[in-house]
């Protein structure tokens, strides 16, 4: 079966925003969540034909132009989206074509546990966008239940360890505040998470 990765686009020469070194971000089309302030709404499944449809080989041929920078700085490819773990088999095949590239993954973890187990074998670092650990807030913002994401995070922690996971804790206007983030961080620290990335969402108005 041919492995394909529908993509809404890619961004070259990112510097230490996705992890160590110079990276290329490749964004998947398709996501199980329906976040109100999604940064890439075109990544939703019902947005029609993807901008690119990659095979592992075609993606490698595209990104290898920056291989000198990847090798020099310890960088590589960041799979984001959308939800890249929907295409974990593709990612695995790609990682075998580019064993010298670091593989990073930005994910909500709202996927099947099988996909988590597979990704744990080859992904070098996970950026987990957990939104908020409060189930009410999570459901209100994403339209889905927190339980699956929480269970998958604990599974991932048991598979790869805390050093390979950074949990993103956004302050989302109209949905959570600093005390919610503090509670989320406290809970996640109890679970064993040690790396956090706290940041604020700033809502861009339609006419700006």
């Amino acid at each position: 079966m041919k492995l394909l990765f529908p993509s809404i686009g890619y961004d070259r020469l990112r510097m230490e925003t996705d992890g160590e070194g110079v990276t290329t971000l490749v964004c998947a089309q398709g996501c199980p969540l329906r976040c109100k302030y999604c940064i890439n709404p075109e990544s939703s499944c019902n947005r029609g034909k993807p901008r690119h449809l990659f095979t592992p080989e075609s993606l490698y041929n595209l990104v290898k132009i920056d291989s000198l920078y990847f090798l020099a700085t310890g960088g590589g490819i960041m799979f984001g989206g959308g939800e890249p773990l929907l295409y974990v088999d593709f990612m695995e095949a790609f990682s075998k074509l580019a064993p010298d590239f670091k593989i990073y993954c930005e994910t909500s973890l709202w996927v099947n546990p099988r996909q988590i187990r597979k990704a744990a074998e080859f992904v070098d670092h996970f950026m987990v966008d957990i939104k908020d650990t409060d189930p009410e807030i999570y459901r209100a913002y994403t339209g889905k239940e927190f339980q699956r994401a929480g269970e998958n995070l604990r599974l991932l922690l048991s598979l790869v360890g805390a050093d390979k996971i950074t949990v993103r804790l956004p302050r989302i206007p109209d949905f959570n505040a600093d005390d919610h983030r503090d509670k989320s961080e406290a809970l996640l620290r109890e679970w064993g998470i040690t790396r956090f990335d706290r940041f604020d969402y700033i809502i861009k108005e339609k006419n700006q």
Partner: peptide
């Protein structure tokens, strides 16, 4: 020290304007 991320209200647009925010618009 504050990090910010600019996002859009996805329910108010048809996606084409939001593309201005993402780096790969």
């Amino acid at each position: 020290d504050a990090k910010v991320e600019t996002v859009s209200n996805s329910t108010e647009t048809d996606g084409s304007e939001d593309a201005q925010i993402a780096p790969f618009a």
